[in-house]
Design a protein around this nucleic acid. Structure first.
Length: 267
DNA sequence: GCCTCATGTTGAT
DNA sequence: TCAACCTGAGGCT
């Protein structure tokens, strides 16, 4: 689930549920019990996100959450907890259950700011400065596919947006940052600031342009098993939706990379 | 029931 | 470069 759009959507949903309330905070599983007691019943002013980091504000106590690979937040009417629930935030009307977070700690505003200072610009934030990312990218020998996943270069982009934004702009994933053209970087950033806000609205990642949908291409409809319609992510060995050649995959920096070797030749 | 995998990050080798 | 971590879902026996 969690690339930047997921966290920004959660910040909106958590704010809608709890801003202006004094929710009860508990830890059904127990691992967050001590901290939960500190913030339970305090006024909540809302939640915010930057990159893949999320925090919920209880006066000067910030609940800092990183979902990692498997963390989930479920917001629903109160019901008995199911599974391993690290934290429940609840009013009589709604409960938010957090499971499997990689990080879940209380921080002061100063501590939180120090964490956020490590992050590169987030395409989902209006104050983001893409020049900061370009400055890192255009003097790096690392492949652009690796740079896009580096949260200190750019924050919020994960494996799906990485693969898809490179495909949509026909850029080879192995192009070194220093050999990436300014035109390509501008195209990547401009695409991200279109795709990612749409991901927040839809709460899923769709990247296939209308002219390339299976219907438009006269192919049978298909079902992606990860909730969105995409060009190459997790489509290894299948036909490229645009040129029909085999979608390729390899492990880069420990993560699965997907691309079309025919469509993606630009630098 | 057991194994593998996942839109992520960190810390040790 | 690799293993560990957090949890649940799906595929397999």
């Amino acid at each position: 689930m969690p690339e930047g759009h997921t966290l920004h959507r959660l910040a909106l949903d958590l704010s809608a549920a709890f801003a202006g309330t004094r929710p009860q905070v508990s830890s059904p599983q127990g691992r967050f019990a001590e901290s939960a007691a500190i913030i339970s019943g305090r006024p909540c002013s809302g939640a915010q996100a930057q990159g893949k980091h999320l925090w919920i504000e209880f006066e000067d106590h910030l609940l800092h959450i990183h979902l990692g690979l498997i963390g989930k937040f479920r917001i629903a009417p109160p019901a008995p907890p199911r599974g391993e629930i690290r934290v429940r935030i609840a009013t009589p009307e709604v409960a938010a259950d957090l499971s499997g977070p990689q990080l879940c700690v209380l921080r002061t505003p100063e501590e939180m700011a120090a964490q956020l200072a490590k992050l590169g610009p987030d395409p989902l934030r209006k104050d983001a400065d893409p020049e900061l990312a370009w400055a890192r990218i255009h003097r790096s020998a690392r492949p652009v596919a690796a740079l896009l996943m580096d949260q200190t270069v750019l924050s919020g982009v994960g494996n799906v947006y990485r693969a898809e934004v490179l495909f949509r702009n026909r850029i080879g994933p192995h192009v070194e940052g220093r050999k990436l053209s300014r035109r390509s970087w501008d195209a990547i950033w401009n695409d991200l600031i279109t795709l990612m806000p749409q991901g927040v609205v839809d709460n899923r990642i769709d990247t296939v342009r209308p002219e390339h949908t299976p219907e438009a291409m006269g192919r049978p409809p298909r079902v992606d098993d990860h909730g969105g319609e995409v060009y190459v992510y997790r489509r290894a060995g299948m036909d490229c939706l645009v040129c029909g050649s085999r979608v390729r995959t390899e492990v880069l920096d420990g993560r699965n990379l997907f691309w079309c070797g025919r469509c993606q030749r630009r630098s």
